[in-house]
């Protein structure tokens, strides 16, 4: 179960907003995390707490295919991203590195600071602050498995290599 505070973002948050290209000279999670969302929400990495949740509108993660973007978000301690929709490569990359991403058409109803609870296994999001509950289409078991195991490579290790 994921439990944390919502951080709100708008439409079309691109991978440059998430982590600017000038910081891509490293693949270190901590170094990338230090600059996460820096241009659109200065100080985000200082304010966010482990387990918090990013909530955005449409087309989150559009732009380049850089896997560094979900790595930076995960590196900040963000436990999940909820959005009305995701750009397709960002969605793949997130799941592959073990960052839960959830499509929720009612994402606009969530405000910054709302306390959220996300149950990935049962496909339920609870907005504790607003006393509202939403269901979302659960990932199939193997995708839940990937996320639970910390990403695609870890999952492959367990399932296919031993």
């Amino acid at each position: 179960m994921i439990k944390g505070k919502a951080w709100k973002f708008g439409d079309n948050i691109n991978t440059d907003d998430i982590i600017a290209a000038r910081y891509l000279n490293t693949i270190d999670e901590k170094q990338l995390a230090a600059h996460c969302m820096e241009t659109i929400m200065p100080g985000f990495t200082m304010k966010v707490s482990k387990g918090d949740i990013i909530v955005a509108e449409t087309n989150f993660g559009c732009g380049s295919s850089r896997e560094h973007a979900p790595v930076a978000i995960k590196g900040c301690g963000v436990a999940a991203v909820i959005a009305k929709g995701f750009a397709r490569i960002f969605l793949r990359n997130s799941i592959n590195i073990g960052l839960p991403v959830i499509e929720l058409p009612q994402a606009s109803e969530i405000n910054e600071g709302d306390e959220l609870e996300v149950d990935l296994e049962n496909g339920v999001i609870k907005n504790i602050t607003k006393q509202k509950s939403y269901t979302f289409t659960k990932y199939p078991e193997f995708l839940q498995d990937i996320i639970k195991n910390g990403g695609l490579i870890e999952w492959v290790k367990i399932k296919h290599i031993k």
Binding site: S65, E67, N93, N96, G151, L152, H160
Partner: peptide, 20 residues
Amino acid sequence: TGMGSTDIASAMITGKVWLK
């Protein structure tokens, strides 16, 4: 379709890929 390097690594091992 095009994908990231991690997807390709996984497919090289398993022969499978996940997809929406």
